[in-house]
Amino acid sequence: MIEVQRLMKRFGPKVVLRGLDFSAHAGEFVALLGPNGAGKTTFLRILASLSRPTAGVVRIGGYALPQEAAAVRRTLGVVSHQTLLYGDLTAEENLLFYARLYGIEHAGQRVKEVLELVGLERRRADLVRTFSRGMQQRLSIGRALLHDPQVLLLDEPYTGLDQDASAILDQILRTVAAQGRTILLTSHDLARAEDLATRFDVLSRGRIVASAGREALHHSGLLAFYRQALEAA
């Protein structure tokens, strides 16, 4: 579903991604781990078509970036630590707006479904400005799912969430994963990632340095695997 080969990204003199190889099958839930400055956000922004690769091949759902960006954008849902919502619009209006941008037919019906999925149907007529951080993040996931994307990218979605809000977010992500979508998630929180993902990739200094499936971790645990991967790199 996601196919990345020898991806390079340079910001002026600074090289952030140096020949990154990555792939994810349909239905896989991959957690992308790594220290700050390893290039996680940059990598996700490139996948999200928000940033151009300096060199390398990126294909999502069979479409190449940046050439077929419009098609990729239809395949992708993106959630970042910024909610990408408008405070002066209601929850429903926010989703309706994005539904129109994605050219979704029967937008009203779809918006209702999504609000139910993220558990905000009761607050649909309230301004997003009045929402808690957790509710905003849930609505933000709803926004990303509006057009029923096959691939979901989540960049640090747990930032700023308290225990309850994180638990609800877990719930939603499980539901979404069970629908057979491909999910790529970055997180600092190893415990959270360990609960959710089916595969763990470690990113260090612009490269994927280790990758392991859930079964392979059974005895050692994610933390040990993560430490080992960073030391070896």
Partner: peptide
């Protein structure tokens, strides 16, 4: 500023418009 406030400019850019 309204677009940049909650990073919405990215929201617009993510859409296939």
């Amino acid at each position: 500023a309204m677009e940049k406030d909650r990073g919405s400019l990215d929201g617009l850019l993510l859409a296939p418009v």
